Amino acid sequence: MTARLSLARVERLAASLSARDRSIILDLARTRILAGSQMTRLHFHDLAQKSRERMRRNVLSRLISIGFVATLERQIGGVRSGSSGHIYTLDSGGQRALPFILASGKQEQPERARKPWTPGQAFLLHSLDVSELYVRLVELERAGAFTLPQFLTEPASWFPNGLGGILKPDAYTLLQFNGVEDAWAIEVDRATESIPTLRRKLLAYVDFAHAGGEGPDGITPRVLVTVPHSGRLAAVQRLIGDLPEPAGHLFRSALFADAARLLALVLRE
Rank of each mutant, 00 (worst) to 15 (best):
G144W: 03
T197W: 04
L133G: 05
R200K: 14
R54K: 13
L26H: 07
I219E: 05
L137M: 07
H210C: 00
R30G: 05
I33W: 02
R96Q: 06
V188W: 08
F177W: 11
T173H: 06
D189W: 04
G105P: 03
E269G: 13
R52I: 11
E154F: 01
H229G: 05
L124C: 09
D21Y: 02
L255Q: 12
L60R: 08
L102I: 12
E53N: 13
R261H: 12
A3P: 15
T118F: 01
R238S: 12
L47E: 13
G94M: 06
S81G: 04
A97I: 06
F256L: 06
R32V: 05
G215D: 09
M1K: 12
Q38H: 03
S157G: 09
G179I: 09
W184N: 09
R22Y: 05
P228R: 05
D189M: 10
S81W: 00
A103C: 04
P196G: 10
P99Y: 09
W158V: 04
E11Y: 10
S84L: 13
A143I: 02
P99G: 07
N178V: 07
A235R: 15
L133Q: 02
R199K: 13
P116H: 13
V188S: 06
G241W: 02
L224K: 08
A234C: 07
K115V: 15
Y88E: 00
S194R: 10
A185N: 04
V130P: 02
A48Q: 14
L167M: 12
E141Y: 07
R252V: 10
S194N: 02
I186T: 08
L198H: 05
E73K: 09
L17S: 11
V227D: 07
A15H: 14
G78L: 01
A8T: 15
L72W: 00
E132I: 00
S81F: 00
L263K: 03
A247F: 01
D217Q: 11
V180F: 12
D189T: 08
I101W: 10
A204I: 00
L98P: 06
P160Q: 11
T71H: 03
V188R: 04
Y205T: 00
A19Q: 11
K168G: 11
S18N: 07
E193Q: 10
T89G: 04
R238V: 02
G67H: 10
Q237C: 06
I101F: 13
A171P: 04
E11A: 15
Q176E: 14
P228E: 02
H43N: 06
A97V: 05
L174N: 10
E269C: 06
P221C: 08
S81C: 04
E181I: 12
L125R: 05
L7W: 15
L239S: 03
G231W: 15
R9C: 10
G179A: 09
R200I: 02
R20G: 10
Q107R: 11
A247K: 00
G162Q: 08
A211K: 09
F251E: 00
S65E: 12
A234S: 14
A97R: 09
D27F: 01
R114F: 13
T226G: 05
E181K: 12
G82I: 06
G241V: 01
G36E: 07
Q176G: 08
T147K: 01
Q176T: 13
I195F: 03
A97Y: 15
H45Q: 11
Q49I: 11
